[in-house]
């Protein structure tokens, strides 16, 4: 399976293609996150929707995981290979066009990768703080109601007074909102997240235009524009992710929770 690593240009395509997939995911993730500003209900609904996808979610997770694995293995392999080609440094090191972001891709990549592990354990599998597994919210499903009597719901909500008749559906779901707020109220975790997403934005600012170049899309007007878009995109992603912990820290979100 890793035979492609012997081909430098194919390896580059793998980097670009897996990168493209990850970028799509990241974009969706960042926009999804912003729903926290629409309130607890919106976020938790969104989270529950994702959970409800079931097999589709798992298929996506597997493909994404594979993309990450290939992206990481290829990059590390290439880096080690390339380092062997030019083992001796010049007495004076000077770069003209190679931007700092491009030269640090492997390092920002490794740091983002480590962050990712933490992030998954923190908010996805919730093993870092197991209490997140138990955070539930009981809510009222506005889209449906039923006629009858449901003891479990009655017990859970302590809402005996509804009696018999038309009832809104009362359900229970994971309280992602509370988890996020709780997580980010820890200043160190928040700062760690903010730092990581800045690195991510930095990584992406080179990655996007690099991806187009690798896939052979380059033109005298397109490329300068794409470099600008790439920078803007990196900033956007960093801001979109960072604004959540920042807002929690500053108390714009989750006050009174």
């Amino acid at each position: 399976m890793f035979k492609y690593l012997n081909h430098l240009v194919i390896s580059k395509f793998v980097m670009a293609a897996t990168g493209a997939f990850i970028v799509l995911f990241i974009t969706g993730h960042a926009i999804g996150n912003l729903q926290i500003f629409l309130g607890k209900d919106a976020l938790n609904t969104y989270a529950a929707f994702l959970q409800s996808l079931g097999e589709i979610l798992w298929a996506e997770r597997i493909v994404l995981g594979l993309a990450f694995v290939l992206h990481i293995i290829t990059s590390i392999y290439l880096k080690l290979y390339n380092n062997k080609v030019r083992p001796t440094k010049y007495a004076v090191t000077k770069y003209i066009k190679a931007r700092f972001s491009s030269r640090t891709m492997i390092w920002t990549g490794i740091m983002i990768g480590s962050f990712l592990v933490f992030h998954i354990l923190h908010f996805t599998s919730r093993d870092i703080d197991p209490k997140y597994k138990e955070m539930h919210e009981v809510y009222q499903d506005e889209h449906a109601s039923y006629f009858g009597f449901d003891e479990t719901v009655m017990q859970a909500t302590n809402a005996n007074d509804f009696g018999i008749g038309m009832h809104p559906i009362i359900k229970q779901r994971h309280d992602t909102y509370a988890m996020v707020v709780d997580g980010f109220q820890n200043i160190w975790i928040s700062l760690f997240y903010i730092l990581a997403v800045i690195l991510l934005g930095f990584h992406l600012s080179h990655a996007i235009q690099s991806m187009f170049q690798t896939l052979g899309i380059n033109g005298p007007r397109f490329t300068p524009l794409m470099i600008k878009i790439s920078n803007a995109y990196g900033i956007f992603i960093a801001l979109a992710f960072a604004i959540v912990p920042l807002s929690v820290l500053l108390g714009f979100i989750g006050r009174g929770l």
Binding site: S11, Y81, N82, R86, K97, A98, R99, S102, S210, T214
Partner: peptide
């Protein structure tokens, strides 16, 4: 190029400079 032992391109563009 690969057989000769050159490295791969990371789009640094230092070559162009």
């Amino acid at each position: 190029m690969e057989d000769e032992g050159f490295g791969g391109c990371s789009n640094y563009y230092e070559c162009e400079a």
